[in-house]
């Protein structure tokens, strides 16, 4: 027990490990923020494409489905290896010449866009068809219907699952360590190999948790606010 406490919770270790892991954790935050913005943007695009009407848009829909199927089924660690190690080795001009951080962002974005596309799509499909019909019969175009009637309701509905995926993404930024981005987990590893203490991992875990808890509470509040607003409207 004493050995365990010393290895994971040594107070002296904390003092050294906190600044070192924090140094890496800033990279996790950067990865997360950039990837998240890109994911929100691209996923909405794919979700809209998947829901397009008409036969002419069939190839687009197939592409969107193929994309989500493929990247939802591929492990992130594999995608990261392909980008971080494979792509630079093929000498494909500018695409092979990016920083490891960029490859990390690309991997996270590719995989999480697939997940979030499905979340958006569920939201869009949850809006009752009568709403679309009503909007169209009022003279709104397809795009206007989407923009002013469907999406505002759809997105509000999927905020909790979206935030859930945010948290997943936040944690998965640690996977990017495998291609050699110096983030929190890497720093924790360096620390443990320098001092033979695992305090670095404890510190990294604490950082990740600290980041997710406010997120979870914020989601709760958002849901509550919306419920209040919608009920007030009913009354």
């Amino acid at each position: 027990m004493g050995k365990f406490l010393h290895a994971f919770f040594s107070p002296l270790g904390f003092r050294h490990a906190v600044p070192q892991v924090w140094d890496g954790f800033q990279t996790n935050i950067k990865l997360m923020v950039i990837a998240e913005i890109l994911v929100l943007f691209f996923a909405l695009g794919f979700a809209i494409v998947r829901g397009l009407p008409g036969r002419a848009t069939w190839p687009l829909r197939v592409l969107a489905v193929a994309y989500t199927d493929f990247f939802r089924g591929t492990p992130l660690i594999l995608v990261a290896y392909v980008w971080g190690l494979g792509i630079p080795a093929i000498h494909a001009g500018i695409i092979s010449n990016q920083s490891l951080f960029t490859y990390g962002v690309i991997s996270l974005t590719l995989v999480y866009t697939a997940y979030v596309t499905e979340v958006y799509r569920a939201g869009i499909e949850s809006v009752h068809p009568s709403q679309r019909m009503a909007a169209r019969s009022l003279g709104l175009t397809y795009a206007q219907t989407l923009r002013y009637v469907v999406l505002p309701q759809a997105i509000r509905r999927v905020v909790p699952p979206l935030l859930n995926d945010f948290i997943g993404l936040q944690k998965d930024t640690a996977i990017i360590t495998v291609i050699g981005v110096t983030e929190a987990l890497a720093q924790a590893g360096f620390y443990s190999s320098d001092y033979f203490l695992y305090v670095g991992y404890t510190v990294a875990a604490v950082f990740f948790v600290i980041l997710t808890i406010p997120f979870a509470r914020f989601t709760d509040r958002l849901i509550k606010q919306r419920e209040l607003r919608e009920r007030a409207q009913l009354v």
Binding site: G84, L85, P88, A89, H91, S96, L100, V178, I179, G180
Partner: peptide
């Protein structure tokens, strides 16, 4: 520059 050992022996630039 940190150059991860894992990617050292690749023909990458």
């Amino acid at each position: 520059l940190r150059a991860p050992f894992g990617g050292l022996f690749s023909p990458a630039p």
